[in-house]
């Protein structure tokens, strides 16, 4: 069942984004920023975590999942370290992905050429 909901929720978030892009003047960059912030805020209310429980990858994979993971990491680290966790926690869950993006991005851009 989780696979069904992952597909449907992931699809709904991107389809809704498509509709927003069509009917508003928002650019993709602006929408990404809005979604990532929205994910963080919804996690603050404890909603996004529940959506991940329900839809797994469907909630985790859209960039809103990235914003939510920042908050999840901060709370997790504050629990462990106190106020220092506000800073160290930011990259607790997302740092692995960011470092991966930097390393792979650097390496691949060295060898691959745009095809167009």
């Amino acid at each position: 069942m989780i696979y069904f909901w992952a597909f449907v929720i992931g699809g709904l978030i991107t389809a809704a984004s498509q509709v927003v892009l069509t009917y508003t003047k928002l650019t993709v960059a602006q929408l990404l920023v809005i979604l990532v912030s929205l994910g963080a805020i919804l996690n603050g209310f404890g909603i996004y975590d529940r959506l991940i429980d329900f839809a797994g990858g469907g909630a985790l994979v859209p960039v809103s999942g990235f914003g939510s993971s920042v908050v999840a990491g901060v709370v997790q680290e504050v629990r462990r370290l106190g106020w220092e966790g506000l800073f160290t926690g930011v990259f607790e869950l997302t740092g692995l992905g960011l470092a991966a993006a930097l390393v792979f991005g650097f390496g691949l851009a060295l060898v691959a050429r745009p095809k167009g």
Binding site: I2, Y3, A6, F7, V8, I9, G10, G11, L12, I13, T14, A15, S17, Q18, V19, T22, Y23, A55, G56, G57, G58, L60, V61, P62
Partner: peptide, 22 residues
Amino acid sequence: VVRDATRAFLLGGCIALIGQFV
């Protein structure tokens, strides 16, 4: 819009599904 949103739904859904397997 119907075509574009359907495609976005299918592609976004598939990528999310792969994410679920991972």
